[in-house]
Design a binder for these strands. Structure first.
Lengths: 330, 330
DNA sequence: AATTTTGTCGCAAACGTTTGATATTTTATA
DNA sequence: TATAAAATATCAAACGTTTGCGACAAAATT
């Protein structure tokens, strides 16, 4: 079955293509009678405007691109969900590509976006090795880029992210409030700026406000690493009374060890994390956490995108605030 | 900055547009010398073919659509991830839309796909009220549809899904092996065919092979429901010794109650689920589960899509097999 | 009655490609 | 040396829209 086009409608109605086009868009030049006829036929023939032709003609697509390290991730999936929702409500469709933490994929994904002439891209850097010229090139082509979560240091770009320092400090506050004496703080990939920000803020805060609290620092690349680290610090000699987990992956690893060794929470050990809340609520008692909402971030990113597309360049760095959610683990 | 087009390249090289086009595609008609020149200029001017023009001209897009109830979901996110990966490796980009379990959204999403002339769509039904004419219309327009997970009964369509009956039976087998006497089996939304299939198979198997085992059946719409149900069955009078959870959501709820009441797993209660494995491994001991891999299903769906796009209609219903993964909860 | 305004509609070019047919030059064959 | 064959490059139409401009009638204004 051949697709119905403006031309086809025009032929059947003995009208010109332009008249049909205008009728369908409710253009004032066209009489009500004609509009009615056109709409009726379009309806019965299932006319669907060809987005390609429109985009080619108008040089503007209604598609936004999202690059994410992985779709299957508790934080990014909710970010994507939020962006998709906002987009759809504003007449945009979303194209999602994953970089799998691989800069090469990131590049080829960007290429796909360029070829599909997306009208904007949300990007999360896949590695600490920032390859920014590509993004700069996007901007030169008037394709706004909004970075999220893992953002470049460079301030030629628009960025939205969690209030990383605030998150870390909030966690530290609650650790101090618990009157912890020996703290284990496990952070993520050392290469990422997000890690550095959180760690620096945490460290400084602890030194300033609880100089007598002994803090150990560790980095875990994944869940198993975190479980191992926790194991090491759970033995008699260096037993810690509070553990801070920078990510969900780390929290999961830590909890694995805690459950395995049957350490009591919160009496024997206090646990606090940074999370969107899903994982912390899986345990009993619920783990206390500083909330970072992928959903919120997605919504913020979207308004930034719209702002960038409408007005001139708004080279801001916005953060979404964090809040502490009391579980029963502290 | 204006985009570089074939026309621009042609002008600068004093060649015709068609020559440039053919040179870039390594067409045998064009001499090596010309090809070299063209490629060099294209490179230095960052030429990117305009996907819209190509799609308009060739009437075929390199975009696939995915409709999913929710992106932020432990099963669907891995399905999406797999489809995206396969697609990218085959030169396709993926457009993802969520229906939020709402048939209306499902319809408008399909519209977006039609207007963007996607060359195929993966669809997961958003409700038991199957609105199939729309999908039939897609097929008539030669846009293949591959249903996944929640599929229509109608056999005019291509479907891939988990081997639902097998999953349930495998779980039942392991329950019998444990020598369970009082079983609580919690299933999901009663309206979905996937629930019916699993429940029927489970029930029949238990009756046939362990007629003396007492089974209670319940349905939970979400995590909290499951937690409540579990609470009811954990009291003295009707204490169960084994619980079967049809979904991750249910498992989470059940485990919440189990942790809260400090019931020992597996000595006091055996727990078994159907899952992709992420959630079961969060607990200690790991929960035994029948594995249903969204990733596997995604890969299967993709090959079905390719088959449908190449050859004629292959109206098959394929299932991906399940396997039992021993945790320590049985 | 002559002129202007208003209401409808059509013409044609453009967006950036692809591709069958055709033209031109070079090389090989008779 | 003439002629066929091969190599190379060009022409022009088409894909389905949008949109500035012009055309023509009927209605309104002088």
């Amino acid at each position: 079955m051949t697709n119905t086009t403006l031309k086809l409608l025009a032929q059947q109605l003995q009208l010109s293509i332009s008249t049909v086009s205008r009728a369908l868009k409710d253009h004032p030049d066209i009489s009500a009678a004609t509009k009615a006829k056109v709409n009726a036929l379009a309806q019965s023939l299932d006319y669907e405007p060809n987005a390609y032709a429109i985009q080619l003609r108008t040089q503007s697509s209604k598609i936004l691109g999202v690059i994410v390290p992985a779709i299957s991730n508790l934080f990014y999936d909710s970010f994507i969900a939020a962006v998709e929702e906002e987009s759809r409500n504003n007449g945009y469709a979303v194209m999602i590509l994953q970089s799998s933490h691989n800069p090469e994929n990131e590049l080829s994904n960007l290429k796909i976006f360029r070829q599909n002439r997306v009208s904007g891209v949300f990007a999360c850097l896949s590695s600490s090795a920032e390859n920014l010229e590509v993004y700069q090139k996007m901007n030169e082509r008037e394709i706004p880029v909004v970075f999220f979560d893992i953002v470049p240091k460079d301030n030629r770009f628009t960025k939205v992210r969690m209030a990383d320092e605030r998150c870390a400090i909030m966690a530290a506050e609650n650790i101090i409030k618990r009157n912890a004496k020996k703290v284990l703080a496990i952070f993520g990939d050392e290469g990422l700026s997000i890690t550095q920000k959180r760690k620096t803020a945490f460290q400084k805060f602890m030194q300033d406000f609880a100089p007598k609290t002994h803090c150990s620092y560790a980095h875990a690349a994944n869940t198993n690493d975190a479980a191992d680290i926790m194991k090491k610090f759970a033995d008699k000699k260096q037993k810690v009374d509070t553990v801070f987990c920078m990510t969900d992956e780390i929290l999961i690893g830590v909890m694995k060890t805690i459950q395995e060794l049957q350490i009591k929470v919160p009496s024997e050990i206090g646990v606090i994390g940074i999370s969107n809340g899903f994982i912390p609520n899986l345990y009993y008692p619920h783990i206390s956490y500083v909330e970072t909402s992928g959903h919120e971030l997605g919504k913020l990113a979207f308004v930034q995108m719209m702002a960038n597309m409408k007005g001139g360049k708004t080279l801001t760095e916005l953060t979404v605030d964090a809040k502490f959610v009391e579980g029963g683990s502290m």
